[in-house]
């Protein structure tokens, strides 16, 4: 499943495609602005933070683990970068943020990978701890960039008409896809997620692989924070709230199984993008913003259910 999706996934994606195209058509008829280049770019810009974070989390999920701490991580890291921009300057702030992101990933990776703690609980605990640290760091008040310079380019800039955050996400995705599919490390991730014991019997260290996957997750959260900080030029202690859910929903929707061992970067992006279009389309059609949550619920259940049913069909065949 690492190279090509199997027949079942194809069928599933086919079904999802039909539904999605139908949805797009309905929205386009009701709100002609939906398919305008401007709006399409807007959607891309909106999903760029979720998409960037999802890149790293995809490694964790394929390795058979979870990361629910990215929402609070995003909050803390955005506060750090915004605040440090005023002290250490943009370059120093970026460096510090990336380091902090790696440190968060390393801690998660240590507990889940090496100490073999339950990933769900560890990252839930970290969700709490990082939220606490974010409150502590910010003192509960808003922080903002006092004199934005070139730092604005990450969130607000465009290049050849395309928003820079979108380009960042796509470049990151290309890199992540290469890492996942073409490198020894990527193979180890699939092996550990697919069958940890077999990986161990093949001389691969599951602990080290899981650790590195969390490191990537922390790193991509830091990248997300750079985009967020640059776009908003400020932060408060709820800025990243709920991102862990969007990231997971996108990954699940893209067809990456939470059981581990299968999935791809492009599928993750596709899932995140689909969520973005659903959200945007519903709002353009005049639905309140929370309508997307209901639709997400339905789409996730339907997508995963069809996926499982298709897999079972294949097992019987």
């Amino acid at each position: 499943m690492s190279w090509k999706s199997g027949a079942a996934a194809g069928l599933r994606q086919g079904g999802l495609w039909v539904g999605f195209v139908l949805f797009m058509a309905i929205v386009a008829i009701n709100a002609p602005a939906f398919l305008s280049p401007g709006n399409l770019l807007d959607v891309l810009r909106q999903v760029s933070i979720t998409g960037t974070i999802a890149l790293g989390v995809t490694f964790v999920v394929i390795a058979g683990r979870l990361d629910l701490s990215v929402g609070s991580g995003l909050t803390l890291l955005t506060i750090i970068i915004v605040d440090q921009h005023n002290h250490a300057g943009p370059a120093g702030a970026i460096a510090l943020t990336l380091l902090a992101g790696l440190a968060i990933g390393a801690w998660n990776g240590l507990l889940v990978g090496f100490l073999r703690f339950n990933a769900l609980i560890v990252t839930l605990a970290m969700l709490s701890v990082l939220q606490g640290l974010a409150l502590w760091y910010s003192g509960g008040s808003n922080v903002s960039v006092s004199s934005p310079g070139w730092f604005a380019v990450f969130g607000r800039g465009t290049w050849l008409g395309i928003p820079v955050p979108v380009l960042l996400m796509l470049a990151g995705a290309a890199l992540a896809a290469f890492l996942l599919r073409r490198t020894a490390f990527g193979r180890a991730v699939f092996a550990v997620g697919g069958n940890e014991t077999a990986a161990l019997f093949s001389g691969i260290s599951p602990a080290r692989t899981v650790f590195l996957a969390y490191l990537l997750s922390g790193f991509s959260t830091a990248l997300g924070a750079i985009i967020m900080g640059s776009r908003v030029m400020g932060a408060q202690s709820t800025i990243g709230q709920g991102y862990e859910l969007n990231v997971l929903a996108g990954i699940i929707l893209g067809g990456t199984s939470l059981m581990g061992g299968a999935g791809s970067i492009w599928r993750t992006l596709w899932g995140v993008l689909m969520l973005g279009f659903i959200q945007n389309g519903l709002i353009l059609m005049g639905f309140p913003f929370y309508a997307q949550w209901l639709v997400t619920w339905g789409v996730i259940i339907a997508a995963v259910w069809i996926d499982l049913a298709a897999k079972r069909g294949r097992m019987l065949a």
């Binding site: 605990a125 709490s128 939220q131 606490g132 974010a134």
Partner: peptide, 12 residues
């Protein structure tokens, strides 16, 4: 914030 951090640490 202390509460949040303490809770998380206790959980770990």
């Amino acid at each position: 914030h202390v509460e949040l951090i303490v809770m998380g640490v206790i959980l770990m």
